[in-house]
Amino acid sequence: MFVVRNYVTMCGTVACALGIGYLMQNGTAAQPNGAQEGVSVASVTDQASVLAGLEGLVLTSSSPSEPASNGPVSTSRTLRPAPVAPQKQANCTINARAMAVAGANARLSIKAPCHSDERINIHHSGLTISEKTDKNGTLNLTIPALSEYAIFLISFEDQTGTVATTHISDVALYDRVALQWQGETGLQIHALEFGASYGEQGHVWSNTSAQGTGDVVRLGRSSWGNAQNVEVYSFPTGQSNRSGAIALSVEAEVTEANCGRDLSVQSLELRADQRLRSHELSVTLPDCSQAGEFLVLNNLLQDLTIAAK
């Protein structure tokens, strides 16, 4: 039995460009020359409670003004409980470290001993990524950077968190396009490099078998209904020996989970001028009778023009 893969082509209407918000690093002050590259750590510590000492307990018998006859004299005495050993408090310090790695990426390492198997949100230059710590409260993640002086804000659902920063010295060598959304949508970035067709070398998307000069990284937890998910396409423009165009499109597979839904999608584009641009799009997916088809959004992402170096 053969399944025909149909495509419904739509031209997405791009809304006005938005400001990225307080997490955007445009215009961030440069770090001093000679600063240690790769590591900056901040932490938040839960305050431990202190056990109060118990007060002495006084027990008193008959009044001392009435002497007892033919018996022992009543006296007052003070009883103090045995000292209570202080309880050892858990170390709930949240630590995060960001380090620049190859490909204009940041390697983020998070340790949160009191947040095992918990949801964690990571914010960077307008991106938000939902992830989960392991049973030890740790998470290691590689994120394509969208700014030279990259800031990562880490937050848990109980409002605790921390910040990590690093210097990404080679970010100017890359053109980078990010797409983010919430929940299970089936969205995918597709890049056709230098005239490539679907399925050929140069057709780049999140499938691990795709081959090309650029690459697509997928981050987040798409199976969570309210999770923040991201795909990022990167091309090493500053190292390319070819000239030509890269056609970019966004596809959404119509499934039983998303059919008929209104999708809110945001793109962030980092081009050669190193200005981060944001666009938003709302689109309604076809009804459930068209499950299995693909919606193709051609105008959401602007094509790249590459000049040989």
Rank of each mutant, 00 (worst) to 15 (best):
M1R: 03
V3E: 06
N6I: 13
Y7F: 07
M10R: 06
G12P: 06
T13P: 00
A17Y: 04
I20F: 05
G21I: 05
G21L: 06
Y22E: 12
L23T: 15
N26V: 14
N26F: 08
A30R: 03
A35D: 07
E37H: 10
G38F: 12
G38L: 07
V41M: 11
V44S: 15
T45C: 14
E55I: 10
L57R: 15
S62E: 06
P72E: 14
T75P: 00
R77M: 09
P81Q: 13
P83H: 02
K88A: 15
N91W: 02
A102H: 11
A106F: 04
K111T: 12
C114I: 13
D117S: 14
D117A: 11
I120L: 15
T128R: 10
K132I: 09
D134F: 11
N136S: 13
G137C: 07
N140T: 12
I154V: 15
V163S: 01
V163N: 01
T166C: 15
I168M: 04
S169W: 01
V171A: 01
Y174M: 08
R176S: 11
A178Y: 05
G186C: 05
Q188M: 11
E193A: 01
E200A: 15
G202W: 09
T208F: 08
S209V: 12
G212K: 03
T213S: 07
R218E: 13
R218W: 10
R221N: 03
S223D: 10
W224A: 13
N226V: 07
N226K: 01
Q228P: 00
E231C: 05
P236H: 09
Q239K: 05
Q239D: 06
S240F: 05
I246V: 15
A247Q: 12
E253S: 07
A257I: 11
C259T: 07
D262S: 12
D262R: 11
L263A: 04
V265R: 01
Q266S: 15
L268E: 02
Q274C: 06
S278I: 07
H279F: 13
L281F: 08
S282F: 11
T284C: 01
P286T: 05
P286G: 08
S289E: 07
G292I: 10
E293M: 10
L301K: 00
L301N: 00
Q302V: 14
